[in-house]
Every structure is written in C-alpha cells, then in structure tokens.
Design a protein around this nucleic acid. Structure first.
Length: 424
RNA sequence: GGAGAGAUGGCAGAGUGGUCGAAUGCGGCGGUCUCGAAAACCGUUGUUCGCCUUCCGGCGAACCGGGGGUUCGAAUCCCCCUCUCUCCGCCA
C-alpha cells in the first residue's frame, strides 16, 4: 500500500500516475485526505486531554503519599468528565482509522516512469528476444498428446486422486520435474541466492503482508480448520520472512531462492487456452526474492531479469521479454517484465516468468524497514520477486520444441540432472 | 487428543497498583587507553502517531502477545482470544 505521507504530499502526482494503470484515484484520494485530516485533528485533541489526565493522576498519587486525602479527592473529581470526553473522542477514532486503512488498501501501486500506458497484452513493450524457433515436422504434437504418447504425465489419474488441474508426473516425467528444480536452484545459488525451503501453508498475516489478502482471498486454497492458506507462490512465505523487522542498510540486498509447490484455485478462469500444462491448480516453481535498498532496487531488478534470461537461454528455448503496460500490470507492481517462451506445437507464446519490483508497496504492508548506519529514522525497503522458473509451461515448451520422430531430446544442461538424454 | 506452565526492549531476564518505556546482564554504537587489537573503564542505545522546527532537534500521546474491563492511575488486578513451551498419548 502507498504511504499516507506520499498521498498527503503528492496527491496530483499519484492521480496522474495511476491513470497509466487505468485507475481513477481522485475520489478515493479525496476521501483518504478527509479521513486523514479528521484523524489527525482527533489525535491532537485526545493527546492534549490525555496529557492533562496523566498530569492529574500523578498529582493524586503524590497527594496520597503526603496524606492529603481531601486534596486528592478534589483532584479525582476533575477527572470524571475528562475521562468521558477522552473515551467518546477516541471511540470516534476507531471507525475513522478503519475506513482510512480500507481506502488506502484500495489504491494500486504507482507504475514506474518507464511503464507505458495501455489496456492489455497488445500494449506491452517487447524489450528483446532470443533463441531460435524450431521448425517442426508435419506430424508434431502438442504437449498434451506427447505426455500421453510417452506416458510421463497423467491428468486422468490426477482427477481420480484429487481433481482437474492436479497432474500426476510419472517416470521420466517426474524425473524431469526434479531435474528442472535442481537446475534452477543450482543456478540461483551460483548467482548468490540463498536457498530457502519454507512452509507451503501460511497464516492470515502472511497473506496480508504480500497482498493476497484480503483482495484475492478466493484465489487461494484455505484450510479452514486451522485458518491456513496454501501458498500460491513462494513469494508469500519468503517475503514474509522480512515482515515486521528493521534491517541494517549494509545488509541489503537479501537474495533468497525457494522451490515450492504452488496452489491456485484459478476460480472462474478456465476456458480457452488452458489445456494440458498451460494452467494448473498445483504446479512447481522456483522463485527468487530480493529485499533491496530503495536506491539500488532497479539494479536488482535488472540482475533478476538477466538471471532469468540466462535460464531460458541455457534451456535453448526461444523467448521474448516484455515490459508490461500499465493495464496489464498487477495491482502491487511498479515495474514488471514478463518472460514468454515459444511453444512450437501450440504456436503460442507462454508466460513462464514475471519479474517485478514492488518498490515500497509490499514493504509498507509488511512493515519491513531499514536504517542507515548512525541514522535514527527508518525507511521502507523495496521488495522484488520473479519466477526462476515456473515448471509446467517450461516443460510444455521443452516437450513440444524438442520432439523428434524418435523421441524428445532433453536440453543438454539438464542431462546431468535427469540421467537420460531422450524421452522415448 | 489430555494435563500443566508461560508470552516484558535485538537477546537473556527482573519487575504484582503510582516519577516504569521499564532494573540488570549480553549484544550494538561512540569514546578513553593502545602502534593496532583484546581486556578494562566511561557514555549511549526501541517503535509508532500527533504538534512544532528549513537542518540538528524539541514537546506530547500510545505501545510490556491481541482485544475488552476495573481504577484518579495498569506491565502489574479481572474477562475473552491467540500463540509458544513442557509432560502424557498418537505418529513420518
């Protein structure tokens, strides 16, 4: 969420910037500013009355000690009406605080200055592309047929065990998953990331910290008996490691990498283009998360983009990098690069990674702050994350792009991990 | 699942109704000493909100797991909730 200070100081600027995300902020901001000023007015008044109250109470105490009972009683008498006034004023403050918080939470993050306006995928800006698109032979198959042909992923079995969108990986299919996870983690470690294996269920506070709650409640699986949520991405537990802390500036940036299964209900989003591995309820992903100094967070973002680019290049997948336009960006992001790989049999680009700088938007929710050495004041950190990488669509692309009449070739960087070079 | 104990500052740990934002120790930071370091000694050390201050900062309020209550006054007393630990049971 945006900070109240920024809203107070840069109202017009915020309204302008949010237009890039096609968000009309003026009305909300006016409400926020009105709530904020009445909040401050009440705060000032109650502070004064409370100070008076404290003064009298101390007086009563010392009078009692001196044995001046009558004077103490007289002083007590002065507090009764004061006490009521404080109570009624501070009761007014509670709904104002709540309303204020609820309004502020509705404002999306400001897009970075480099973000282009736009309404959807067509307005995204292609930054660069790489790799070579394969030319497939005539009888080439989409991945949902390939997985049956080679018996490496079974959707029907998943339906039996759980339901649609929960595939079962078998034999070389399962081994390929494990190989990709290990490859991604090892590459991350080489790039200076610390490996983390977090819980894959989180509590409500964590869900709020990264912005999944309250807005996207319906997108997460909810274990209601214990009120835990299955994570939709490792971003949630890993970023929440830094919830409610004050860090030293010289420790930044923190670079963590985590493999987790991810769970998404994807309520209402099933339809065209979601066959096979394109969209699942449970899938595997390796995520990179950075906690960065605000002065250097865009440097971190560039590093993360290069890291992910290195991964898709090493896997020999044709890819392109897009800078998302305002209309296609998430609520919480300031700048997002999407990575897409070419799926040769589907003849489509598939999104495999989304790398974002959230600036202080998540940090403000998380209360993740830092201090410069010798400095008294705290500042909010910047948080960033990106997939490095999500498995299913990578698998889809590998299967489709690398198919030959005699089987599917495993990218050479993965062979040490799989122990085989062909699926056949 | 059963029984019990507990939750205090970065950590450990005192504090059972009044100058307690909180002793003490450790850690951190600054200094003295030293060629330098260690030790020793001295000083300093939380967060949030509001008001004032062009900076440095000053004043006030709140915060001792969370919420409510009693009281002139609550870390301390009462109620509710959450969480943690120990023992027993079960168990990869």
């Amino acid at each position: 969420m945006l900070t109240i200070n920024l809203i107070r100081e840069k109202k017009e600027f915020i309204i302008e910037r949010l237009k890039v995300k096609n968000f009309e902020a003026e009305e909300i901001i006016n409400r926020i500013l009105a709530l904020d000023s009445s909040r401050r007015e009440i705060q000032s008044k109650t502070d004064l009355m409370q100070a008076e109250m404290n003064r009298i109470s101390k007086e009563v105490g010392s009078l009692m000690k001196d044995g001046k009972r009558d004077e103490a009683e007289a002083a007590k008498g002065k507090t009764y009406s004061l006490k009521e006034d404080i109570k009624s004023l501070s009761d007014k403050l509670i709904p104002i605080d709540n309303d204020l918080k609820n309004e502020i939470i509705r404002l999306p993050n400001l897009p970075h200055e480099s973000v282009a306006p736009g309404h959807g995928a067509d307005d995204n800006v292609k930054v660069r592309e790489g790799g070579v698109m394969p030319l497939l032979y005539d009888s080439a198959l989409p991945h949902w047929d390939l997985i049956k042909k080679y018996d490496i992923i079974d959707f029907d079995l998943g339906i039996k065990l759980t339901g649609a969108g929960f595939p079962v990986y078998l034999g070389k299919g399962a081994k390929l998953q494990r190989a990709l996870i290990s490859f991604f983690l090892d590459e991350g470690e080489k790039a200076g990331y610390r490996e983390v294996m977090p819980p894959i269920m989180v509590n409500e506070e964590s869900g709020f910290g990264t912005g999944q709650l309250p807005d996207k409640e319906g997108q997460m699986y909810h274990a209601t008996i214990d009120n835990f949520y299955l994570i939709p991405t490792a971003e949630v537990p890993v970023t929440n490691i830094y919830r409610d802390v004050i860090l030293n500036a010289d420790m930044l940036p923190f670079k963590n990498i985590a493999y987790t299964p991810c769970f998404r209900r994807e309520a209402g989003s099933w339809g065209a283009h979601v066959r096979g591995l394109n969209r699942l309820h449970q899938f595997d992903k390796v995520e990179i998360v950075q906690i960065a100094h605000p002065d250097h967070s865009y440097k971190s973002l560039e590093n993360m983009v290069s890291h992910v680019e290195g991964l898709v290049s090493k896997l020999d997948l044709p890819y392109r990098i897009l800078r998302l336009c305002g209309g296609d960006m998430s609520f919480t992001s300031a700048l997002t690069y999407d990575f897409e790989v070419w799926s040769a049999a589907q003849k489509r680009w598939l999104e495999v990674s989304s790398v974002s700088n959230f600036e202080s938007f998540q940090a403000n929710r998380l209360k993740c702050r830092f201090k410069e050495k010798g400095d008294k004041q705290t500042r909010l950190v910047h948080t960033l994350n990106g997939s490095a990488l999500a498995l299913p669509r990578i698998v889809a692309a590998i299967l489709e792009n690398n198919q030959t009449e005699s089987g599917i070739k495993i990218p050479s960087v993965l062979i040490p991990y799989t122990g085989f070079d062909m699926i056949n």
